[in-house]
Design a protein around this nucleic acid. Structure first.
Length: 740
DNA sequence: GAACCCATCATTTTT
DNA sequence: TGATGGGTTC
């Protein structure tokens, strides 16, 4: 156990009873967890079988597994190190049947959920304009995260018409999921809770087993996960949770920061250990991060410190446009790399994915290699989803979503009419669509399509032998061939089709990778596909490339050099958070900023621009408040931020040509309600020192006389009669008129 | 069944 | 601005 500091050691060796480890950024949290497990096994003679470690990501789980196995001699797999979700899958695969479930359930991702919602909305005859799938999914998800059944909500939402409709959707959705024999991500947790509630024997079995439980990233747990942990630790109470309330950035996903803030209330005898020594960043970077996060209320007091030395100052630069900002970053990168930095040392972090485009553009132009983290995942591609749907249907004939997806892909002349007919008839008979089709007598009811359906069933059944033998690669090849999927893409011959074929080849590789496991099954493969989001782990760590990602994705990572771009109000913090009634919304953005800053080891570059193009139009945003919150002594600043805040909407195609400084309503809408109230301290508010009758000067129109001024929204609409160009109307904030 | 047009929509997303 | 999906048309 060498190389641990006092606090880390304390956290490792306090094994009995509840323990909260407040692990600041870069404080060696994983190291502590790994050592703790090793300590339990080697010093306390705990059977690895009695240890459970829960993480949020597969990446974290794998890393922990590897590091534990490297540290001590332990039978691989004897310790449960897994994500919440895969843990629940494991439990449900074994015991779901005890509460009337089918252990063979499929796991639905967001896209599948969407498809289910679509059908539900149709069934319930709800206006798709009023009820969007996305909103329904969000409603259902947040219900499950907070452990609410449709029945619970029915009472709660009784007075609210719209909410009641949503509850109907939720109920019907669950009904459909049951028919499809599918569980979504939230169900995995919720149904496990259900299982524990309904079958205390099963709960007791796991309670007995897990004498020592550790939960990583505890600040990200939601209500249902909290309950799950509470139940599992119910018997031995040797529960160690690790987290950092300052890095709680997933509220929108249901994470409840109070789980960590109130841990000591829930467990009165809890010991708290704070890890405040940071091994990652320079003192300058750390001080800046501390200063920013200090503006939040209701946090656990802690202050990170380091022995790493002062380091260089943070570089903050104001650019004119997002293009210049991207170019600026690229130039900085080139200079850094000319001076010995590797591309892979560098990350560019941004608030929204949309910001990546311009940066990519400039990187490409400068021939700087980069990798984009996030974005549309591998398993979201059409061709992958198609083939996976075949696999899913083979594994679970009840999966109507999979059935509907591939019944006519590639085209085999089975149209919408036939599918609808199958759906109706199967529903009447209370069997799944696929099983309905399997019966020759049933098929006769389908008229002309009967034979085609027959061929389809025959083909599907011909795949079965590969499943039984576990030859999943053969299964894949056979599907690609017999369905004609491969042929169709080859015949197409376009670049796009070639790309799709490459992706499918990649899928085949993933299948081969999965087959390395001791007992590969189709069910296991599908589990891997749905639970292990594509981490794009193919060849990255070794690649010498600049990393581009959102601030959210950056959590848990570190880079010698970090760029944080777009440090502007309404972008970061986001406009939505600024306009939110919830005062914590901006605090969450600040935590996100804290996360961003603390990713940097040696150098931190911040930047903003005076104006940037957004989907609303050209935005002129104030400098982010987070910049203000960094004490001047830690930062060098280049460039001056203009003192204008506004958004110019795109001109309407049909609008009359000529000048219009934003078309009334558009501007008013774009003018956030919070802007006037917000004070950056750098006088973003327009100062009007002229009045009707005064002579003023405009940067473009020259000199003129003010003829009218009337308040509008949070601004003034000024009418000026210019000497050269005549009368113009404009907004004071934009026009920047100077009294002469 | 495919090509095209228009309307619509637009933070963050570990599973 | 741009991607996406539904609806229309041939």
């Amino acid at each position: 156990m060498l190389g641990l500091n006092n606090k880390q050691w304390e956290a490792c060796s306090y094994t009995e009873g509840p323990l909260l480890i407040l692990a600041g950024a870069g404080s060696g949290k994983t190291r502590v967890l790994v050592h703790r497990i090793a300590y339990l096994i080697e010093e306390k003679q705990v059977d690895p079988y009695n240890i459970l470690a829960i993480t949020f990501t597969n990446k974290a789980a794998n890393e922990m597994k590897e590091r534990v196995e490297a540290a001590i001699d332990v039978e691989p797999g004897r310790i449960w190190v897994s994500t919440f979700h895969s843990m629940c899958v494991k439990i449900l695969r074994r015991f779901y049947v005890r509460i009337g479930g089918d252990n063979n359930f499929a796991i639905y991702d967001t896209d599948d959920q969407k498809a289910v919602c679509k059908e539900v909305l149709k069934t319930l005859n709800l206006d798709p304009k009023m009820y969007k799938e996305k909103a329904c999914i969000a409603f259902i998800s947040s219900a499950k995260e907070s452990c609410k059944t449709p029945e619970d909500l029915e009472i709660e939402m009784a007075g609210d018409y719209r909410a009641s409709q949503m509850v109907r959707v939720y109920r019907e959705y669950q009904h459909r999921m049951k028919i499809n024999n599918a569980l979504d991500f939230d169900d995995l947790i919720f149904k496990t809770l259900d299982l524990f509630a309904q079958d205390p024997e099963v709960l007791e079995y796991y309670q007995d087993r897990f004498k020592y439980i550790m939960v990583d990233e505890y600040q990200d747990t939601n209500e249902s996960q909290f309950q799950l942990v509470r139940l599992l630790a119910g018997k031995w109470r040797n529960l160690c949770v690790v987290g950092d309330d300052d890095q709680s950035i997933y509220k929108f996903r249901g994470a409840n920061i109070y789980n960590i803030l109130n841990f000591e209330d829930e467990y009165k005898d809890a010991k708290v250990v704070k890890l405040e020594q940071n091994y990652r960043s320079t003192e300058t970077i750390l001080n800046a991060a501390n200063a920013v996060i200090a503006n939040n209320t209701g946090r656990k007091q802690k202050r990170l410190w380091t022995e790493n030395g002062v380091g260089e100052k943070i570089n903050y630069q104001v650019y004119e446009t997002e293009h210049e900002e991207a170019l600026g970053a690229v130039n900085n990168i080139m200079e850094l790399c000319n001076n010995g930095r590797e591309y892979s040392d560098i990350a560019i972090l941004y608030r929204t994915n949309a910001q990546s485009r311009v940066i990519e553009e400039k990187l490409v132009y400068a021939s700087i290699p980069y990798k984009l983290v996030g974005g549309t995942g591998f398993y979201n591609r059409k061709e992958i989803r198609d083939i996976v749907a075949y696999l899913k249907l083979l594994s679970n004939p009840s999966d109507e979503i999979a059935f509907s997806r591939i019944i006519n892909v590639p085209r085999r002349g089975i149209g919408a009419t036939t599918v609808t007919k199958i759906r109706e008839l199967s529903l009447q008979n209370g069997i799944s669509m696929y099983n309905f089709c399997k019966d020759e007598g049933n098929r006769k009811l389908l008229g002309r399509s009967a034979d085609k359906i027959g061929d389809f069933v025959e083909m599907m059944e011909s795949f079965r032998p590969y499943i039984e033998t576990g030859e999943l690669d053969e299964l894949f090849d056979s599907i690609m061939e017999k369905t004609g999927y491969e042929m169709e893409l080859r015949a197409e011959g376009t670049d796009e089709a070639r790309g799709r074929l490459e992706n499918l080849d990649e899928l085949r590789n993933k299948i081969l990778g999965y087959m390395e496991e001791e007992e590969p099954t189709l069910l296991g493969l599908l589990e891997d596909i749905s639970l292990v989001a594509d981490t794009d782990d193919s060849a990255d760590d070794t690649d010498n490339k600049v990393t581009l990602m959102t601030l959210h994705s950056a959590k848990g990572l570190e880079f010698p050099v970090v760029f944080m771009v777009g440090m502007e109000e309404r972008l970061f913090p986001s406009g939505l958070s600024m306009d939110s009634d919830d005062p914590d919304a901006v605090e969450e953005e600040r935590r996100l900023c804290y996360v961003g800053i603390t990713r940097a080891m040696k150098r931190l570059f911040l930047s903003s621009c005076t104006t940037r193009m957004s989907y609303q139009g050209r935005a002129y945003n104030a400098e982010s408040r987070f910049i203000e919150e960094i004490p001047k002594e830690y930062m060098t600043r280049t460039g001056v931020k203009a003192n204008v805040i506004k958004t110019e909407p795109f001109a309407k195609k049909s609008s009359v040509s000529g000048f219009n400084f934003g078309v009334g309503a558009g501007v008013a809408k774009a003018m956030p309600k919070s802007v006037p109230a917000y004070n950056t301290g750098t006088s973003n508010n327009v100062s009007i020192d002229y009045n009707v009758g005064d002579r003023v000067k405009h940067i473009k129109f020259g000199k003129g006389t003010v003829t009218d001024m009337k308040p509008s929204a949070d601004d003034f609409e000024i009418t000026v009669n210019f000497d050269n160009v005549g009368e113009k109307h404009m907004f004071a904030k934009l026009a920047k008129l100077k009294k002469i």
